[in-house]
Design a protein around this nucleic acid. Sequence first.
RNA 1: GGGCCGGUAGCUCAGCCAGGCAGAGCGGCGGGCUUUUAACCCGUUGGUCCCGGGUUCAAAUCCCGGCCGGCCCGCCA
Length: 566
Amino acid sequence: MSGSRDIRQERFLREAVVEYHGRLMHWADALVEFLAERFREQGVSHVVVNGGLSVSGLQHVGRLRGEIIIGDVVARLLSEKGFTVEQKLTLYTQDAWKGKASQRKQFSDPEEAKRYTGWPLIRVPDPLGELPSWVDRYWKDFGPFINEFTWGRVEVVTTTDMYRGKLKEFVKLSIEKREEIRRIINKYRGRKPYPEGWIPFEPRCSRCGRIDRTVALEADLPAEKVRYRCRSCGNEDWAPLWDGKLNWRIEWVGVWWALGVKFEPYGKDHATPGGSRDSANELAEKVYGLRPPEGLPYEWVAMRTPDGREQDMSSSDFVGFTPREWLEVAEPELFRFLVLRTPPMRKLVVGLHEVPLYYDWYYRAERVYYGRESTGKKSEDLLLARSYELSYTEQVPPREMPAQPPYTHLAILAQVVPRELWESEAVKRLVASGHLPENPDEASLQRVKRLLPRAYRWAQLYAPEQLRIRLLESLPGEIVERVPDEYRELLARLGDVLAGLEQWSEEAIKKAMIEFTRGWEGSRRRRFYHYLYLVFLGRESGPRAAPLFSLLPRSYVVERLRGLRR
RNA sequence: GGGCCGGUAGCUCAGCCAGGCAGAGCGGCGGGCUUUUAACCCGUUGGUCCCGGGUUCAAAUCCCGGCCGGCCCGCCA
């Protein structure tokens, strides 16, 4: 490979902050520095960044890391250096559906779904029978959200479309050069070498639909078709050059060739020296005279579940969660931040139940970025500040640091304040509690507006029981039974007091309650509050009572309390 | 057979490249905020730096050899 350094040995793949050309840098900056040098040497000024993924099942957030976000950051930083850039994402929709148990399970009749085994993904039906295909089904929770995680310039292409266009020319070229190709590929296929006369194209069988079991027998290039035999059903037929696929190594080169790719990261499954990426590079150079794109090996993303177990996310095994699920409970910038603070070859572990923790980290990085705080270490400050800065997609961080309302606080608030009051009452209370400044700036308000619905959703879906608050609409008998007579009377009397208040305000309620419990022993007060929460929330603790009551109709509060009287 | 990442406080991790008093956040515990909290404030607790050897005045850090955990590739994509 033209004698230049192998990126796999670079420190910036493993260390978050590195010294590069004598300067301390964020790994992403060092990477781009590295790439810019290569491109200048090659006389490349227009850079096509590509990512690739096969829609074999669940499109989890791990796919965002290497194939989209890293590419996005590289494209953005290269353009700041004066390069023109494009970003593509190639969907391998012609790949064969493997028919793994986990894939078949998506269908109501997994047994019957066996018949799709070996079909191109794009032709496998939607398991739910609503969308045109399997691809559409699983692209649904991923594709539409790419823009939120990026600059919004990612152009999606499918190999299915490409075979009808530019890749068809590449197929012809490959059939012409089949002997050269065979010689190289067979180096990697010791035990199963392709025989002499092998044609590097696998058509889709017109009878059984499989794309993974056919052997091309002869090619008619002017007519753009090949004759084949299906090793699965025995069918022999002619197929057009667009209705099939190339052996994957060749296809990969074809994508580079068709799109003019100059940079494409690759997952750890392709990163072994002498492995798939290296062999594709060799094909590109020796057969097609094509300079292979610059690459970047990256680790996958694993998922941590609340019980502490972790597992690599896997598309075809349906392990992980999707960008849509992430956006339900957190902002896209937060995910970018996690990706950016982790060097590419280190595993990134995420769990949706840990979102509040990630916001703690993010806020800290934000304070460092705005110079409000320091970790005491130059390299750590640099990592946090730069990761924070690059976490922004279209915009840059605001001039003034936004307020940092703690995520769990918002989760509680959102459950206590009715949804229609989030922009009024919830904001008011955040100001009162000091989580928002007196006259909140736009960025702070935006953050609260974006986070309240997300924190609410998070509380419903992933929060521990302790943080989940739900008002009891009616009072179940078994809860009443748990309240001793003495306290039932006390609570009912509190109801009387509240009923007589001139004003139904937080302040008035708080005063009344303090007055009501004045002089009580600690244990009595504690038990009183426990039963108070019990009859409203079904548990023994909750958010501060006065602010909570002030948001509820007085009649509801009073009736609940008085209803306890024997 | 080959390759990658990790092992430091109960948990999540920083520190290692470039050796110099073992750190942060969270948790726990105690206290405060006139009940509570994965809110806020103050204080406090906490370690065989995986093991063994080597280099060194000095090793979590460098070198050698192991062990453990997670993962990838071995001609599918």
